[in-house]
């Protein structure tokens, strides 16, 4: 059986908010290491990879690997019924037809349980190579969100080019062009999460669909910083770390000159 108790139930809401616009169903894999999800969007252009490590839960028991296929839209509806301060317990049997969500209010004066039907999802599991990134950019997540929103107001595709001087985001649309350069500022007085840091072994540049990048920024409430990893001619990774718990990562295939 599987049973996991999470003290910060609000975290589950944030995780679901970060994926609900991209996927409609997914297999949550329960394993002794934690709860994970890998799923592609319907156009198979991007890949979501979530990990919630077992150590991040107050109580975690998983005897064997259990795939828990869930409709994300319905899951959002159920998790919305939890208060943001509630403690959430997720429970299911080894071959589950249903999964149970138990919500306990912080003061222990209200207990709710919801049972949701599982579904069989037959999706291909992709193999993400263990990559050394040519360029890694760490920046405030709110700034990245703003930047993607601004770029999407002008064009559909953004060219991201990273040099040791900084990261240049460029787009072109019917009304004109836009360029935003973010420079590394590691020596200032900023707190760590306010800094922009760039690590590169060689300059890298590629084009990406802004519609997807904008969807990824729905994960902004999960982390004060976001990390972009790039390798020439390979998908970009956009990573939001979840403190003491794991991550939400998005991989997006580049646009390639025909």
């Amino acid at each position: 059986m599987f049973e996991a108790r999470l003290l910060q139930g609000g975290l589950l809401k944030k995780v679901l908010d970060s994926i609900k616009d991209i996927i409609t169903e997914g297999n949550f894999d329960c394993s002794p290491n934690g709860l994970s999800l890998q799923a592609m969007d319907s156009s198979h252009v991007s890949l979501i990879d979530i990990l919630l490590e077992s150590e991040g839960f107050e109580h975690y028991r998983c005897d064997r690997n259990i795939p828990m296929g869930l409709n994300i839209t319905n899951l959002v509806k159920m998790i919305k019924c939890a208060g943001s301060e509630d403690i959430v317990t997720i429970k299911c049997e080894d071959k589950p037809d249903n999964v149970t969500f138990l919500f306990e209010s912080k003061d222990n004066d209200k207990i709710s349980d919801f049972e949701m039907k599982t579904m069989t999802i037959d999706d291909e599991h992709l193999l993400v190579p263990d990559q050394t990134y040519t360029a890694v950019v760490k920046m405030p997540s709110a700034e990245f969100q703003r930047l993607c929103r601004d770029m999407a107001a002008i064009g559909d595709t953004v060219n991201i080019s990273v040099t040791k001087e900084g990261v240049r985001f460029s787009t072109t649309g019917d009304m004109g062009t836009a360029n935003i350069t973010v420079r590394p500022n590691p020596s200032g007085d900023q707190k760590e999460e306010e800094r922009t840091e760039v690590q590169i072994t060689e300059p890298v540049s590629a084009g990406f669909a802004l519609r997807y990048l904008n969807s990824f920024t729905k994960a902004t409430p999960l982390s004060p910083t976001v990390t972009l990893g790039m390798v020439p001619n390979l998908p970009i990774v956009v990573e939001y770390k979840i403190a003491d718990m794991g991550h939400v990562r998005y991989y997006l295939a580049p646009k390639i000159e025909d």
Binding site: L47, L126, L127
Partner: peptide
């Protein structure tokens, strides 16, 4: 024009 590749093109099944 720029062509959008699929993610499977890069990450073959595991």
């Amino acid at each position: 024009p720029m062509q959008q590749r699929s993610i499977e093109f890069f990450f073959r099944g595991g």
